[in-house]
Simulated scan of single mutants.
Amino acid sequence: MKNYILFLFLIISSCNSTTSQVEPLAKGEEQFLNRENKIINLYTTAAVPLFNDYKCINIPAKLQVDEKDYSINAGAAIDYIEISRGLINLESSTIQLFVLAHELAHIATLSQAKSFGLPGEIPAGKRTNEYKKAEYLADLIAFHLILKQRPEDFNFLKSNFSFLISLLGNGDFTHPSGQERIASIKKYILETEEQNIDIAFKNRFNKIFYMN
């Protein structure tokens, strides 16, 4: 994903005394920018605060947009989060929050593993490679933090597992299928019903980390 998104505000006035000649935005463009500002606000006020307890990770300050991608998609790197135009256009802010939290969770995964006394890299299993494990772990961290801090959003996600399975797709070499990913989350939820949620989180994290 390319450069940081720089236009959080639209400057429509000239710096000199002459009348501005900037043409008004077309209705579709204005609508898109409004949605873009909403997801930027969601990122800064809802997604990022989920990770306040992770003191040793570098949370990207800004989002950047892939305007050519109309699928519901996002990606994370060391210094940015990239989101697709399709994600911006999505009506559900809770699904958007999960996608953003999942990407931030990738950045937090190794820090979380270290706090549990696990190695500094995810080991590959015979049937589940380290890339797929990273996806399972990012899902787990996102769901756990949303459960602890935003239970209403958690309940919405829980009631929309069918949509999430469809959204997460059929899987590939680096990603488990949506069916597999939600099955993993359901195991975590079942454990939270039987014990303290932090213990359930730690147990599920360990099981995924050493998954065969």
Results as ranks from 00 to 15, higher is better:
Glu191Arg: 13
Pro123Arg: 01
Leu50Asp: 04
Thr18Ser: 15
His144Leu: 04
Ala108Arg: 01
Ala26Val: 14
Tyr54Ala: 06
Glu191Gln: 13
Leu168Lys: 08
His102Asn: 11
Ile83Gly: 04
Ser14Asn: 15
Ser162Ile: 08
Phe201His: 00
Glu130Phe: 08
Asn73Lys: 13
Ala74Asn: 13
Ser84Phe: 07
Ala138Met: 00
Glu194Val: 10
Glu67Cys: 03
Ala77Thr: 15
Ser92Asp: 12
Gly169Cys: 05
Gln149Lys: 11
Pro119Asn: 12
Ile197Trp: 06
Phe154His: 08
Gln96Leu: 07
Met211Val: 06
Glu91Tyr: 07
Leu145Thr: 03
Leu190Val: 06
Glu180Ser: 12
Ala74Thr: 06
Leu164Ile: 11
Leu100Met: 12
Ala200Met: 08
Asn41Arg: 09
Gln149Val: 01
Tyr54Cys: 11
Gln195Ile: 14
Glu121Gly: 04
Ser84Pro: 12
Ile72Lys: 07
Glu91Ile: 10
Ser14Gly: 12
Gln64Val: 00
Ala46Thr: 13
Ile185Gly: 03
Ile141Asp: 02
Asp69Met: 09
Leu97Tyr: 12
Leu104Lys: 00
Leu140Ile: 02
Ala113Asn: 11
Val99Trp: 07
Ala61Ile: 12
Pro119Arg: 08
Asp139Cys: 10
Ser71Gln: 15
Ile182Glu: 03
Asn160Lys: 04
Ile59Tyr: 10
Asn3Glu: 09
Glu121Asn: 10
Leu137Cys: 01
Phe156Met: 07
Thr109Gly: 04
Val48Arg: 07
Leu50Pro: 05
Lys55Met: 02
Ser92Trp: 10
Ala47Gly: 05
Val99Gln: 04
Ser115Tyr: 00
Ile83Asp: 00
Met211Tyr: 05
Asp53Met: 09
Asn203Ser: 11
Val22Asp: 08
Asp198Lys: 11
Ser71Asn: 15
Ile208Cys: 03
Ile83Pro: 03
Glu29Val: 11
Lys186Glu: 10
Arg35Trp: 02
Gln179Phe: 02
Leu63Phe: 05
Asn73Met: 05
Leu190Lys: 07
Leu97Asn: 09
Phe98Leu: 08
Gln149Pro: 00
Glu135Met: 02
Asp139Tyr: 07
Asn16Met: 07
Asp153Leu: 01
Ala113Trp: 02
Pro151Gly: 01
Asp66Ala: 14
Thr192Trp: 01
Ile197Thr: 00
Leu145Trp: 04
Lys2Leu: 14
Asn73Ser: 14
Asn155Lys: 15
Gly28Arg: 15
Asn196Ser: 02
Phe205Ala: 03
Ala76Thr: 03
Lys207Arg: 02
Leu50Gly: 10
Leu164Tyr: 00
Leu25Met: 14
Asp79His: 14
Met1Asn: 11
Lys133Ala: 12
